[in-house]
């Protein structure tokens, strides 16, 4: 807990600075609302905001799960079969240079204004970090561990189960965490292009009515949801990989 104290204090300090800045320079509310305004807007719009948030959360979660499945399958295929990697890895990397903002309208054209295109945007944004870090994890397995298993007479299946899968887990979770932070953002981007519900819609509407404090309130909610998702992933990681977190006491001290 101690390690969160200093960033929290720094954040608090920035908020106060912001409040004073807006107050003293008499900045118009629709240009830059003070943190207190944002808080009030958040409280006032809460029921509506919650409704939109839940919708966005569902899109993000569905897309994220889709990305996890797709990303893992791709990574396994590439990590285990060199020719698959040689063939599709460059394509996947190049595909990331296409801006998602350019692809999203196409998805709207093909799949309409329903939930599906948003889920796909999330999946497209999220699968890449999962794939890349899992492939890296499989590549970086200590080959001597594999060698040890071979001397024991292990089959390729046993090597996979006993060394490669557990060895790649930390990288897999690292990818999951990055993807989780992108997932809510992906859903909001999808919503900006059209739809009837969700935080993205709420933001666009607030913007058009110059209710800037509501835009900020949405940002707060997006951040909170992303943090919660990352927290859940972190929790699952700790439960799945207790060995990574069982360190000597001096190692923990060093981390601080």
């Amino acid at each position: 807990m101690k390690k969160y104290l200093s960033p929290f204090l720094a954040f608090l300090f920035l908020l106060i600075l912001w409040e004073i800045f807006v107050e003293f320079l008499h900045i118009e509310k629709f240009i830059l609302p003070a943190p207190s305004h944002v808080a009030r807007a958040l409280a006032a719009a809460w029921p509506l905001l919650l409704d939109h948030s839940l919708y966005t959360a569902v899109e993000a979660l569905l897309g994220f799960m889709f990305a996890v499945i797709m990303g893992t399958c791709l990574a396994l295929a590439m990590g285990l079969l060199p020719w698959v990697k040689r063939t599709i890895y460059p394509l996947i990397v190049v595909s990331q240079t296409i801006p998602i903002m350019a692809v999203a309208p196409l998805l709207i054209i093909w799949f309409g204004y329903d939930i599906l295109p948003k889920v796909l945007v999330v999946a497209l944004v999220c699968f890449f970090p999962i794939t890349v870090s899992t492939v890296e994890g499989l590549d970086n397995i200590d080959q001597d561990m594999v060698k040890l298993l071979v001397t024991m007479g292990a089959t390729p299946g046993q090597i996979l189960r006993l060394v490669k899968f557990p060895g790649a887990l930390p990288s897999f979770f690292a990818g999951l965490k990055i993807s989780a932070t992108y997932s809510i953002m992906g859903a909001v981007i999808g919503e900006w292009l059209g739809g009837s519900k969700g935080l993205g819609i709420y933001m666009t509407r607030s913007m058009h009515s110059f209710l800037t404090e509501r835009v900020f309130a949405s940002i707060v909610v997006i951040t909170a949801m992303s943090l919660i998702l990352v927290g859940i992933i972190e929790l699952i990681a700790r439960l799945t990989m207790p060995w990574l977190y069982q360190k000597k006491s001096w190692q923990q001290d060093e981390k601080l």
Partner: peptide, 17 residues
């Protein structure tokens, strides 16, 4: 393979076990 038990130069303990 399989006639000898080989302890390699590194200890190669699996950290997840």
């Amino acid at each position: 393979k399989g006639h000898t038990a080989y302890m390699l130069q590194k200890d190669l303990l699996l950290p997840w076990r």
